[in-house]
Write a protein that binds this DNA or RNA. Structure first.
Lengths: 222, 222
DNA sequence: CAAGACGGTTACAAAACGGTTACATTTTAC
DNA sequence: GTAAAATGTAACCGTTTTGTAACCGTCTTG
């Protein structure tokens, strides 16, 4: 699988060095010279950001902060000056992150990158979501209520787990369409209703688990 | 908001050290010396479990297993011996979890705890606008006054949140039209009045929350 | 004070929304 | 390939939400 990295540094030389060496190792590398650019370039495909914390415009810290506020978790390898205070870093960094002090050796950065990506890959987490008596095992495509197993189809399962994960927020039909169907699939939004109806039918003996508020959308009602 | 952590370890010394340091950081800490105790003590208010995987009785693994099967999702910070096999851990850990190898530095544990809790919090960005007793939860599409929930329609909700966010400034009907309706929707400006009237009706028991100054517009009156 | 602008309120009409069913089409399993 | 299962579409319905019009009183301004 392609491994895509975004390198963010306002010093062009550093970007070049890192890009050259990382691509040499087989990674796909994109480069940004400011936080603004980085946020624009960043996509779901990036698995790691190498981020200089001292830049003009949006600083690296600010950028990290913004990133952490958005939903998708992505590991960050911080490039810091030696005297950067630790608390600042720990404020933004999470378990998957790491940092290297400037001036760094290329070898060191490569090692960290490799380590982080490896960690991220092997850590294929079992995701089990529960809400009260409802429990959803995303890996096994398994839904149980009060320990009784419910057989759902793929779409039903996808929609239910989306709703559970988004709980207590509501999802409009379009939200659900966007997340459950691929970009190249086009179905009417009313299709969602039908799936919801089928889901409700299967879950009926457990009460009104999926509720709707006109105009707001569907939400978990436990 | 209070952040409550449950520390589970059969070595009392370790519990003491962690409790002291975590409380020093402002967390509320409960301690259990066995899996059984832990499950008994655990409440909805705990936001993180620090869990030693090697304990007598119910082992940490068993406990994690039970947790993942029964309870609502709660992040776990595993304390592991250095030689613990990775697969065992990954079997029980989910995306929100993390682990620290024993012997650990207190500093490291604190950093991990901070990271996990921060991640857990930013994941559900509860944006709440409040003004005195009125509080608007933008994510939930929910409005509460004195903790009592008010059911609003979408338009009512949009208008009210606009007014609250603009407070203490006033909004003319045209301001409201511009911001609440899409560019391609054309409605009479008097429509705004009607929505305001409906809003006021629903909020009547809480006083004159939405006021108007002739010529200037609507504003929040708390 | 008087005219006109402004805003509140109500009743009603129109539109949007969502639930449901039957059936067509696609995918899957054998 | 065929049967069964899953998925998508269309059409019907009732409900909720939203928009309009009309009537009224009140505020502003000359």
């Amino acid at each position: 699988m392609e491994q895509r990295i975004l390198v963010v540094d306002d010093e062009k030389d550093i970007c070049d060095i890192l890009q050259f060496n990382l691509e040499n190792e087989g990674y796909t590398v994109d480069v940004a010279h400011s936080g603004e650019d980085a946020l624009a370039i960043l996509t779901d495909e990036h698995q790691l950001i190498v981020l200089d914390v001292m830049m003009g415009g949006i600083s690296g810290f600010k950028m990290a902060e913004q990133l952490r506020e958005t939903e998708n978790y992505i590991p960050i390898l911080f490039l810091t000056a030696k005297n950067t205070e630790n608390d600042k870093l720990t404020g933004f960094s999470s378990g998957g992150d790491d940092y290297v002090a400037k001036p760094f050796s290329v070898k060191e950065v490569l090692a960290r990158v490799k380590a982080i990506l490896k960690r991220a890959q092997t850590k294929t987490p079992i995701k089990k979501w529960s809400y009260k008596t409802l429990s959803i095992d995303i890996v096994n495509n398994n839904v149980t209520i009060n320990d009784k197993e419910i057989q759902l189809t793929k779409k039903e399962f996808d929609i239910l787990s989306l709703i559970v994960q988004t709980s207590p927020n509501a999802l409009t039909r379009n939200d659900i369409l966007d997340k459950v169907w691929n970009d190249n699939e086009f179905v009417l939004d009313r299709t969602v209703d039908v799936h919801i109806a089928r889901l409700r039918k299967k879950l009926v003996e457990y009460g009104n688990i999926i509720a709707n508020r006109t105009g707001f959308g569907y939400y978990l009602n436990c």
